[in-house]
Design a protein around this nucleic acid. Structure first.
Length: 401
RNA sequence: GCGUAGGUGGUAGAGUGGUCAAUUACAACAGACUGUAAAUCUGUCGCCCAUUGGGCUACACAGGUUCGAAUCCUGUCCUACGCA
């Protein structure tokens, strides 16, 4: 049977790090690589030309959002994801598993993808659940029922449905339907959720393999297990034993847990298959992911932060709207090759931001995408040249100030 | 000149005798954001100390009524509209 993707490792080390290439039906992904998030088949504020110019190689869209709007029939009519968004490069779709969390346990709470101090969170079972949230997700053995925030309609997503929708969307790499859990859940709940995620992984895989399209779309299984070593390793083993084309590492993490969770998992996953660290993208975390064996990353941070006026620089993040930049004639980052830095001053972009001109968020997003995509490209170059550790040390010393 | 309506914090605009240092929005200043419920959200926003809290000066200006006034009365100044 024909394989949809080929993964080739070019160079290994230090640690578990590797540089390689994932060949997809729509072109290569040079790893380590940062994938740009375009949830609704659009990267907020950016055209595909801007994305290419910023160096982006791959775009990740979301099954749940596209299923809700515009829906499978219209996606099919428009010719699928690549065609409708005019993106010629590789694409991925997330399964909707993250929405089980963000619209479920995470909904209406302060719990998000990365937390500062998980230990101080009240465990979900101990909370007054009535007072906490309007529930938008109900999880059961077979899947998750989503109450649409758009019109209140309930949509029941099973692993098979998620696969079916992702087949229609047509990305090169798709993900198994999983349950991303809140770190505030008890271990017992993590255990139950993990068993469910594994059952769903198997069902996702079986359904996918039963269709000819599995020769054109790669399926990645998603490892969960919260912050627990035994669960994480067990999850990696369970998924490694299934015939996935690659793996995703998911979860909502305490900042401190990210490192250990990734390491535990990648020590178990087969080396020859690509690993995607889901939803991670701050510079420190990307270094950590790369040296612990992750190949690809996606994150909304570059576009969300940019839209909100925060931009990356080698000396750390700055908020462009701050008073001190309003008369600053320098670019966001001296020497930066992005369109925003080659064309405009901080003063001008600060003005755009403060006057709510949409060009402001666009320029900040362009810069952030360029910054993060090229940071990971530089990591790749450093890996190939054997200078990763020096590169990391230098970068972080300046970045953390 | 006469008549009418009005003058509130950076702006707009609530409030019409005590619960008002004054609703709200905008602006300003700062912060947050990690498989996008997010072009969003949070905090501060008269002055001076303090941890809860306290003191001071304030709703055009000057007087007055009242235990108490941004709110009622009188006068002055100013603004808008109408009539001359």
């Amino acid at each position: 049977m024909k394989k949809p993707i080929e993964f080739r490792i070019e160079k290994k080390g230090p640690g578990m790090a590797r540089a390689g290439v994932i060949e997809t039906p729509h072109g290569p992904i040079h790893t380590p690589s940062f994938i740009i998030v375009g949830t609704k088949a659009a990267v907020r504020g950016l055209t595909v030309d801007m994305l290419r110019q910023a160096g982006a190689e791959t775009v990740l869209a979301n099954t749940y959002h596209l299923y809700m709007q515009p829906g499978e029939a219209r996606i099919r009519a428009m010719g699928g994801l690549q065609k409708m968004m005019n993106w010629e490069g590789p694409t991925m779709t997330d399964s909707g598993g993250f929405q089980v969390f963000s619209l479920g346990a995470g909904y209406g709470s302060s719990v998000s993808k990365i937390l500062k101090d998980v230990a101080s969170l009240p465990l979900l079972k101990e909370r007054d659940e009535e007072a906490v949230k309007p529930k938008l997700v109900e999880i059961d053995h077979d899947g998750a029922a989503f109450k649409s925030p758009l019109d209140g309609m309930v949509h029941y997503i099973t692993p098979e449905r998620s696969m079916e929708i992702q087949h229609t969307i047509g990305a090169d790499i798709i993900f198994a339907f999983d349950e991303c859990t809140s770190p505030a859940e008890t271990k017992q709940y993590q255990r139950e959720a993990l068993d469910r995620t594994h059952r769903w992984a198997k069902r996702s895989l079986d359904y996918h393999r039963s269709k000819p399209i599995s020769e054109k779309q790669a399926l990645f299984g998603v490892v969960q297990g919260g912050r627990y070593e035994d669960l994480r390793k067990e999850s990696a083993e369970a998924l490694a034993s299934m015939d996935f084309d690659g793996f995703g590492i998911g979860g909502s993490f305490d900042k401190e847990d990210l490192h250990t969770a990734v390491r535990w998992v990648n020590e178990v996953l087969p080396e020859a298959k690509p690993r995607h660290l889901l939803g991670i993208g701050e510079p420190e975390d990307l270094f950590l992911g790369v040296e612990n064996g992750c190949d690809t990353f996606d994150c909304v941070a570059p576009t969300r932060l940019g839209r909100h006026g925060t931009v990356y620089t080698p000396a750390g993040k700055i908020h462009i709207g701050n008073e001190r930049f309003q008369d600053d004639q320098a670019p966001i980052q001296d020497g930066c090759g992005c369109y925003a830095c080659k064309s405009y001053s901080r003063a001008y972009i600060a003005h755009l931001h403060k006057s709510h001109e949409m060009l402001g968020p666009m320029l900040c997003s362009i810069h952030n995408v360029y910054f993060i995509v090229n940071l990971v490209k530089s990591m790749r170059e450093a890996l190939l040249q054997g200078t990763f550790t020096e590169f990391k040390t230098d970068f972080l010393a300046k970045y953390r100030g």
